[in-house]
């Protein structure tokens, strides 16, 4: 696995205390960034009776027995604080931010630990383009990176001869093969685009500055608004540094009906894949019904940002106790 010094006995951190001091200093810089800009720092529950429905995210589950226990005594650990933060926005919080722990099943590797530190913030009245500017300012403050490139999802695929919005599945499959990537069986069209992007494109992103990718295919809108057109595109962006995805942001979907449709579609996909079908978040839907202010929001993996700031190549080099030592 590892990255850091695996010869250390398992009770000890695998990284030196000096690295923890560097991490603490970076965290302080992030906090100062948001203090100076006047956003409200909030805390929201890690545990919820409802969970994210995204077919590519696995929520960890825990049990709670006692007063107020949820159905089946089952609580889900957040994969991001997005839903409760949107409920705060709908309740009139104004711009908010938080740093919290999030949890994702099945994710472990050189850039993944199943629990990690997320920075998430929301800007009422902003769109995703304005928020990309602010993400770049934060990255500049923490990592000193100032060159910024902004390209659309379609522009990334064009040099590969692929129309990311229009080409059908067999064409995507052929494109993967021509790049020397034998597609594993059972990938849908978006899975093939993920294969090509993560293997053949992302490793080269953010090598000399900050790379933003925006205007994702409608099928990958997640929680972003879709802008109608030919093609319709999701107002979603991702930020890359040194071949790593650092952040994912949206011009947030505020339409409760559309959100409910996406939840149901996600759950259908989960059922067809034999994956667990967690309860969708009805309180989020109620908040959207009430009215979410027009806003943009972004989630940033702080461990990865700190990897870049500290020149680390493995996430274990910025964690005191990664999974195998937790």
């Amino acid at each position: 696995m590892g990255a850091a010094d695996n010869r250390e006995p398992a009770w000890k951190p695998a990284i030196p205390i000096t690295r923890l001091r560097e991490r603490a200093e970076l965290l302080e810089q992030v906090r100062a960034f948001f203090r100076q800009r006047g956003l409200l720092e909030v805390e929201t529950p890690v545990l919820s009776a409802a969970a994210v429905t995204d077919p590519n995210l696995e929520s960890l589950v825990t049990e709670y027995r006692g007063p107020g226990a949820p159905p089946r005594e089952r609580l889900y650990l957040q994969t991001s604080p997005e839903f409760p933060m949107k409920r705060l926005l709908a309740a009139g919080s104004g711009p908010i931010w938080q740093i919290c722990r999030v949890f994702r099943g099945g994710e472990r590797g050189a850039r993944h630990n199943p629990e990690f530190t997320m920075l998430e913030w929301y800007r009422p009245g902003w769109d995703h383009h304005r928020l990309m500017d602010e993400v770049a300012e934060l990255v500049w403050a923490i990592c000193g990176e100032s060159t910024v490139r902004r390209r659309t999802y379609a522009e990334l695929f064009r040099p590969l001869g692929l129309d990311a919005h229009g080409d059908p599945q067999p064409v995507c499959e052929e494109a993967a093969r021509s790049l020397g990537l034998e597609p594993p069986p059972g990938l849908d069209r978006d899975g093939l685009l993920d294969l090509i992007l993560s293997h053949a494109v992302v490793p080269g992103l953010g090598s000399d500055g900050i790379d933003f990718v925006h205007e994702f295919p409608e099928s990958q809108a997640a929680l972003a608004r879709v802008r109608p057109g030919h093609p319709a595109v999701a107002e979603r962006f991702e930020c890359f540094l040194q071949g790593m995805e650092i952040a994912n942001g949206f011009h947030e979907l505020g339409d409760a009906e559309e959100q409910a449709r996406r939840f149901r579609r996600d759950l259908d996909v989960r059922r067809s894949r034999g994956r667990p079908e967690p309860p969708m978040d009805h309180r989020l839907l109620q908040a959207l019904h009430h009215g979410l202010p027009d806003c943009a929001g972004v989630a940033m993996g702080l461990d990865r940002l700190f990897m870049v700031a500290l020149g680390a190549t493995h996430i274990d080099q910025v964690l005191a106790f990664p999974l195998e030592r937790a």
Binding site: G106, P184, S198
Partner: peptide, 30 residues
């Protein structure tokens, strides 16, 4: 290598050596 876009399909990209021929190739699994 574990490769996963935040909102996308997770993959395991492996480098493997053929034990009969010694040839090394890359392969990707879901």
């Amino acid at each position: 290598e574990f490769v996963k876009p935040g909102k996308g399909q997770a993959f395991n990209r492996v480098r493997v050596r053929n034990l009969k021929t010694g040839k090394v190739i890359d392969r990707t699994f879901k």
